[in-house]
């Protein structure tokens, strides 16, 4: 069979895999953003012990490879009595790692806001909540966007790791098709085209969104 015919035959399977990859990305992103927010709150808050725990967490989870986290979430937790399905093990591992990155991005976003802005808002008589909501956060968000979107495209690529624990994502489908057809290059190239098309599409959309946000704010 010619390569194109093969591609046509396997494309539906690949797209089904892409859907799983995207669900994984979405769930992991939600977890990572929530965790990142908690980490920032803990690190900038007044409770020393929480700040120390958050700092330790960031140091450790940034230094351990995602694959080790994934196997820990899937195999080690099962041994300890918490049996997660592959998909959720992937969400936990990716969320736990990307939470540290998002936490750092948010922190540097907050730090990029000039202290004068906060002081001016206070001097104008805004309440603490209003200072945060109307002055600090909108500016911090602008600074957070570029590294944040960059992290998102890395997250999508890292979802491919769940192949190793048998979650049927795009990479898994490509690998299965490669084994079934004995034409690994053809199948992996098709997967590459799907990933790459998605990567380009997403980065264009995000770049446009960033530009829009910036324009509206300035």
């Amino acid at each position: 069979m010619s390569t194109l015919q093969l591609w046509g035959q396997y494309l539906p399977q690949f797209l089904a895999g892409l859907v799983v990859s995207l669900q994984l990305t979405g769930a992991a992103l939600v977890l990572a953003l929530a965790l990142g927010t908690l980490l920032v709150l803990a690190r900038t808050g007044r409770i020393r012990i929480l700040a120390a725990i958050a700092t330790g967490y960031v140091e450790v989870f940034r230094a351990v490879p995602v694959l080790v986290l994934l196997f820990t979430a899937y195999y080690s937790l099962a041994q300890l009595g918490l049996r997660l399905p592959g998909f959720w093990a992937g969400v936990v591992a990716l969320g736990a790692f990307y939470g540290t990155l998002y936490g750092e991005d948010m922190r540097s976003g907050l730090q990029s806001v000039d202290p004068g802005q906060r002081e001016a808002a206070v001097a104008l008589g805004l309440s603490n909540g209003a200072v945060m909501r109307r002055v600090v956060l909108p500016q911090a968000f602008l600074a957070f966007l570029p590294p944040g979107t960059n992290e998102l495209s890395n997250l999508i690529k890292d979802t491919s790791l769940v192949l190793t624990i048998g979650v049927t994502d795009l990479m898994f489908q490509a690998n299965a098709a490669a084994a079934a057809t004995f034409q690994p290059m053809d199948m992996f190239l098709l997967a590459g085209v799907v990933y790459f098309a998605f990567y380009i599409l997403l980065s264009r959309i995000l770049a446009r969104w960033e530009l829009n946000v910036q324009r509206r704010r300035s």
Partner: peptide, 22 residues
């Protein structure tokens, strides 16, 4: 762009398994 756009696992598999097709 290609190196950054493709998942690392896929790149590795293309080199190790993919090339074996040729």
């Amino acid at each position: 762009e290609i190196i950054r756009g493709l998942p690392p696992i896929l790149q590795l598999f293309i080199i190790y398994f993919g090339l074996s097709q040729f």
